[in-house]
Amino acid sequence: MVADCYRREALINQALPAQIPAPRLQWMEEQDGWVVLGFEAVDGGRLPATPWKPDELTATLDSYTITAEALSTPPARLQHAGIKPVGEDGDFADWRNLARGATPTNVLPSWMPLDLLNVLAGLESGWREAVVGNAVLHHDLRQDNVLIDADGAAWICDWNWPCLGASWFDLVLLLATAYADGHDATCLFAQHPTSRGVTAEQLDAALAALSGFFLTYGGRPPADWSPHIRQHQTWCGEVTLRWLADRRGWTF
């Protein structure tokens, strides 16, 4: 399973347009079921500081502007890689499943008001229409998938899961991490070029979809293939839900 992910990353990385700020694959080796990828070194490359520093967050948003422009329509080489629309392999229906009792509510944090389930289910139901598009998305644009180089520029890494959709959908999870660190994520979203024309309801639908997905998966039993994945998923779910709550004026 993991080896297939690395094979996929190698295929996608080699198909990325030249202007995208991403480290490029230099070599790949396979032996006895193991896959090793070697990427070009990023001079002085390091993860962004935690909490986000304003200049590093700005650099990352600028790099995503370049990326989104280059991928506003799927380049031929990426089309040949078989990139699918977001949600083609499954729906974000977690709040709806919780609201109708198909998923037990004990997967949710204790502070989550259950009287919001129907409201969240309603918001979530609009996610697919909200994020439809033909742009190529990174689809995992998190703080730990970014490197800051010696000059302060940001490089976007780990191109395992690209899909097709609206470019702004990539910003939601990235800016959720900024929200967690005290930044005005809604303002930063509105200022980004990819958000042009996006309504408040579209953003809220995306936040509902992501929060339900992460909270539900975070409540599953531990995964032996990644011992900290459930903790990370729960954190992502709580952050996206709190950002949504802040936007809707909900108090937990």
Rank of each mutant, 00 (worst) to 15 (best):
G33F: 06
V2M: 09
D224Q: 10
Y64G: 06
G165W: 04
R230H: 09
R96T: 15
L123N: 04
L141K: 03
L25G: 01
W34A: 13
D184C: 00
R230G: 05
W111N: 01
P48M: 13
Q26T: 10
A176I: 12
L175A: 06
A99I: 04
D184N: 15
L71K: 04
L37N: 15
V107P: 04
T186N: 09
I83M: 07
R196K: 12
F39V: 02
H139K: 15
W127I: 09
E29H: 14
D94W: 15
Q79N: 09
L78F: 01
V239R: 03
F189K: 08
A68T: 03
A102F: 09
M1R: 12
A76R: 11
L117A: 01
P113Q: 02
V42H: 08
H183G: 03
E30K: 13
W34R: 14
N97L: 14
T103F: 11
Q143F: 04
L123W: 14
P17H: 00
Y179V: 05
S63D: 06
E238V: 06
L120M: 12
W235A: 13
T60I: 08
F214A: 11
A206S: 14
G249W: 00
G126H: 15
S63T: 10
D158M: 00
W225V: 05
A15C: 10
V131F: 07
I156S: 01
L25A: 02
D149R: 11
P23E: 04
R128Y: 08
F189I: 12
T240W: 05
Q233P: 01
P104T: 11
E56Y: 06
G82N: 03
H139P: 02
W168M: 10
L210G: 07
H232R: 11
M28D: 00
C187E: 14
T65C: 14
L241W: 15
V239I: 15
P104Q: 12
L120T: 01
I66L: 14
G165T: 08
H80G: 10
G152K: 05
T65L: 02
R196T: 13
S72P: 01
Q202I: 04
P162D: 12
A68V: 02
C163I: 02
G218R: 14
L11V: 13
A223F: 12
A59T: 12
D151I: 02
L98H: 08
P162H: 02
Q19I: 10
S125V: 02
S211C: 05
E30V: 10
P222S: 06
T251K: 00
L71H: 00
D91Y: 09
A180W: 05
R8Q: 10
V146A: 08
V42F: 06
A185E: 11
G212W: 09
L210M: 13
A154P: 04
L116D: 05
R96L: 13
V42E: 02
L57P: 01
T60Y: 04
V86I: 12
W111V: 00
V42C: 13
D158L: 02
V146P: 03
Y217D: 09
T60A: 13
R8P: 00
A41R: 15
V198E: 07
R100D: 15
Y217I: 07
A102L: 11
I229F: 07
V119F: 07
W127G: 03
A150T: 13
L147A: 11
K84H: 10
L244Y: 01
T199W: 04
G219D: 07
L123C: 06
A59Y: 07
R7K: 10
R230E: 07
